[in-house]
Write a protein that binds this DNA or RNA. Structure first.
Lengths: 210, 210
DNA sequence: GATGTTTTGTAACAAATGTTACTAAACATT
DNA sequence: AATGTTTAGTAACATTTGTTACAAAACATC
């Protein structure tokens, strides 16, 4: 654990903070598709992502879903931070997109560290900023792009997160993430295939052009 | 200034912090429609909103706009905070929706205060959380609602911010905020009028049902 | 290989949103 | 009063997105 901590956070946090994190944090491994945070959960701490990728999804009262963004190694979940420190509920769902490793930091220390460590303050503020910017990008996508562009962007983003040029997924799964219907996804994927941007297989989409 | 500061922030900040804010902050009055922050600005500080309402708008590279949310008294602009503390650029535009009063806090003190004042830490974290939640609400609106519902929500939200039951605005202005066309807005407004939810006048929309 | 299940393809249609074009009303200016 | 400008109303049509229905292909299981 210390090794991975050093390798992704060694240049972010000062030594004393790394020591505290090692002492107080709990390491956890997540299987693919494992649920990390569910809607309405009260967080007892915040996760630092050491390895893997986490999908963050928003769900409204009618159970309708939409993908917000992905977390990568080095990231933390700003929404959990919010929930942990204020004892409030979390408005999102977090699912491991692939096998991942996290360190769970207990909420009791979050505020102490803000006082003690400048690097922690920077990290927290940066995390919030990154997340605000991701949200804005999501809003741009929803407000300004048509479904075909959104789909292509979705495929590229997801491939990038997975560090693959092929995605193992179904049209239905994409439809859930994008909050549209499977038929629409199939139609637009076929269109992208005709434009030679992707190649379609069963349970797999190959991205030809980034 | 001290009076207004006390009345909106007296229960939020401790006395020493209020003293510092009074000493180091600069008071500013904004006319209606005055531009407070523009896209790409580097912020020299963050505004605390004492009075009035500020409209926060997102613009993409093609100059297309969409309303993100409103700030009310007691709020601050999380996006400016981000920009100020990291010396980065601001990704939004902020315009006074009505005559407003703000205190501008110099960016040099933002980090110091995080160490010195627990109330400041809480305020900053709360502000980020509120903003993240607003962004999620905006995303919900874009992803899950049809244009007619979005329009009705827009009217109610804006009226609430203005503390009025009538809005002085044009169909074109609404279209800009919602990133649609004037014709669509006129059509849907007429529909809302038929449903007795609003009453239309020239340059004014009366909201009959909240 | 027969059977059932999951995934994909596609047509036909419906609904929502966007666009163009024109008109009329309200208001302002001279 | 005549004129121009801004704002709003509406029809007709185009495009985008969503829905329903069905068939075929790929795969899994027996």
């Amino acid at each position: 654990m210390r090794e991975k901590l050093e390798s992704y956070f060694g240049f972010v946090f000062e030594k004393e903070l790394l020591d505290e994190i090692e002492l107080l944090g709990t390491y956890k491994k997540l299987r693919e598709n494992e649920l990390l945070v569910d809607l309405g959960d009260k967080m007892k701490g915040v996760p630092l992502l050491l390895e893997g990728a986490i999908k963050i999804v928003r769900e409204d009262k009618n159970g309708e879903e939409i993908l917000l963004y992905f977390l990568e190694r080095g990231d933390t979940c700003a929404s959990s931070f919010a929930s942990a420190i204020s004892n409030g509920k979390c408005g999102i769902r977090a699912i491991a997109e692939k096998e991942s490793e996290i360190i769970f930091l207990p909420k009791e220390k979050l505020d102490d560290w803000l006082v003690k460590y400048k690097t922690w303050r920077n990290f927290v503020i940066d995390s919030y900023n990154i997340r605000l910017n991701e949200m804005m990008e999501t809003i741009d996508t929803l407000a300004f792009m048509r479904m075909d562009e959104r789909l292509y962007k979705y495929l590229r983003d997801r491939a990038q997160i997975m560090r693959e040029t092929s995605l193992n997924t179904t049209h239905q799964e994409i439809a859930y993430d994008m909050h549209t219907s499977r038929v629409v996804v199939s139609r637009l994927l076929k269109q992208l295939e005709n434009e030679k941007k992707v190649k379609l297989h069963r349970n797999r989409i190959e991205i030809l052009e980034f």
